[in-house]
Computed example of a mutant assay.
Amino acid sequence: MPTLRVVDSITELSPVDAGCIAVSGSHGGLSSARYALAARPLLSIFNDAGVGKDSAGVAALDFLQASGLAACTVSHKSARIGEALSTMCDGVISYANPLALMLGVQVSEGCQRVLDKLQTH
């Protein structure tokens, strides 16, 4: 069963967290993706931050997919940006890359439900 790491900022992860499920309050932009790439979690969960110009708030998903890592976001309307507990308890999945979908993540599903499924398999 993967370890659960709940961090307000994805920058709190390190290589010792490889294979964990990372629930963060960070936006899903490229700068956050680089920290996730360095730590290599099984799944990174971010906030979509309203998606933004040129989909900058979800750019991490494609970047991490290209690196073989699963990632998804929760809607900024469901969880507070920068607060991982809000991501985990209140977040509703808004976007997911194909690797996250393969893990069983579903858009419109509550983050806590995703975590429950992943931690029982």
Rank of each mutant, 00 (worst) to 15 (best):
L43A: 07
I10A: 02
G91Q: 09
V114Y: 00
T120F: 05
Q112W: 10
G50H: 12
A36K: 08
H27C: 14
A70W: 07
R5K: 13
I45W: 01
P15D: 00
R113P: 01
M1F: 09
T11Q: 02
A18G: 01
G29W: 08
A36L: 14
G110Q: 08
E109M: 15
A66Q: 12
G19K: 05
L69R: 03
G82L: 06
N47M: 13
E83N: 15
K53E: 14
V23F: 04
T73F: 12
S14T: 11
R34I: 10
D90R: 14
S32C: 06
A22S: 07
Y95M: 13
L43Q: 01
S31K: 14
V74K: 07
L37P: 06
D17G: 00
D17L: 06
A39G: 07
E12I: 04
F46Y: 15
A96N: 11
C111Q: 01
S86H: 03
V7P: 05
Y35D: 04
L30F: 08
S44D: 09
I45R: 07
A49P: 09
L4S: 04
S24L: 00
N47F: 14
R40P: 02
M1T: 13
V6L: 06
S108Q: 14
L115G: 01
C111T: 03
A71H: 11
Q119L: 15
G104A: 06
L101R: 13
S44W: 07
S86W: 04
A38I: 07
L69G: 05
M1A: 14
G68F: 04
H27M: 15
A59S: 14
L37E: 14
A18E: 13
G52W: 13
D48K: 11
I93N: 01
G52Q: 14
Y35P: 03
T3L: 04
G91M: 09
G28S: 05
L69I: 15
S31Q: 10
C72I: 01
L61T: 03
D17R: 03
A79H: 05
S14K: 03
R40A: 08
N47D: 12
V23H: 04
T73W: 10
L99G: 09
K117E: 02
A49M: 12
F63D: 04
G91F: 02
T11H: 00
L42K: 13
H76P: 02
G29C: 11
M102P: 02
P2L: 00
R5S: 08
T3P: 02
L43N: 02
S75T: 05
L103F: 07
Q119A: 04
G50I: 10
G68H: 00
G52A: 08
G91V: 08
K53Q: 14
L69A: 05
G29R: 04
C20V: 06
D8M: 05
R34E: 11
A33C: 07
G91A: 06
T3S: 09
V107M: 04
G110V: 00
Y95P: 02
M102K: 15
K77W: 01
G82N: 06
V105W: 10
S108D: 15
L103C: 08
L4C: 02
M88V: 09
A84T: 03
I21E: 05
A100D: 12
T120R: 15
G110M: 03
L42R: 15
L69D: 03
A18D: 06
L61D: 05
N97L: 10
S44N: 11
Q112I: 11
L115F: 07
S31Y: 07
Y95R: 13
